[in-house]
Design a protein around this nucleic acid. Sequence first.
DNA 1: TTGTGTGAAACTTTTCACAGCC
DNA 2: GGCTGTGAAAAGTTTCACACAA
Lengths: 209, 209
Amino acid sequence: MKKPSRDTISRMALYLRALQELSKARTSPTISSQDLAKELNISSDQLRRDLWYFGQFGRRGVGYSIESLKSKISQILGLNRSWNVCICGVGNLGSALLAYKGFKEHSLNIVAAFDVDPRKIYKKKSGIMIYPLGDMKKIVRSRAIEIAIIATPTAGALLILNKLVSCKVKAILNFAPVKLTAPPSVKLRNVDLSTELFNLTHFLSHGVR
Amino acid sequence: MKKPSRDTISRMALYLRALQELSKARTSPTISSQDLAKELNISSDQLRRDLWYFGQFGRRGVGYSIESLKSKISQILGLNRSWNVCICGVGNLGSALLAYKGFKEHSLNIVAAFDVDPRKIYKKKSGIMIYPLGDMKKIVRSRAIEIAIIATPTAGALLILNKLVSCKVKAILNFAPVKLTAPPSVKLRNVDLSTELFNLTHFLSHGVR
DNA sequence: TTGTGTGAAACTTTTCACAGCC
DNA sequence: GGCTGTGAAAAGTTTCACACAA
């Protein structure tokens, strides 16, 4: 059995979201790979292959139980437990993430925020306390924070990264438009909001893909 | 010659950003694929192969001229002209995008925003006027808007999508956590902020990739 | 008959490795 | 010697197609 690719994991997240919709809609207790794939504009082959990496979840001739597939995918994505998360940088993007409701639904709890601006410090935003960087070590430890999100401007990102690494957070998601690198003890992913836009401008200019 | 993949295009955006840094730093007028790739933690083979899809930009034994590669990549990404963009949904994320400086640098001009909240309408935010949906057709046409960004909650996304399609925008970037589909006349990309987080929780739970 | 699970084929992307110019 | 450009090999991903279970 082989290792699933990162794209497979990303699609698992899509499957989970679609299953949650279906679960609310309460149509039938089961769904076929065809029908679920159609919702997401992918092939049923790909859906079945993605699930194949993790085991056998369906019944031949019937399909997948929505509830049980939902809980299996939650487990695969590590969402069967809760995670404490902090947001670093409470500018526009940081505030958007603080207010984002999609996190709590998946037991991702934002428990603290950090900023350098003295006017923001020790105030709450969307119910979350904003701390100065000097408090980071203490708060990360006391609140058992394992995941950090960097939402600072480019200039502050490297300083924050180093602080987070020394606080021993386990994973970091970076939204600042710099490609950051972390030691292997920390899992780091860079996300760039404008990259996708450039995919669009490329397409509009040259008419491919 | 083959078509570049979407990943190749995304990396082109990274290369451009790195080259812009180098250009500011004014170290040497040229850079080798090795050195540029090292900045981005990828292999020099991959960088050279990515460029290969578009032509020959380097000189053997020397490397690439930073300035000329920069302008070539800008052209490839369609950033050698300017684009008018609108933001749909002026909540936290929409506001973050309105304030985001990275767009203007690449001649992506946000020229209008739309929202359903009467309290926001006909007011400016980050210097951009917010219009009601009823004005969309008029504004899209008069401001020659070709690209739209959806930053509404899930519930509003489909309505906005349909309006945008009927206004004949050419490309849409969707940040709402639903997978939207558009007719082939419109290029649509879905971006989900929480998907990347799930990649991290998956990794932390199972220790792979 | 319906629809999963999965080898095998087809296709895509990355890496290797080296000829050829600076 | 240094470094690009690029065929060819290797690795990875998606699609095909069908055995088999309900």
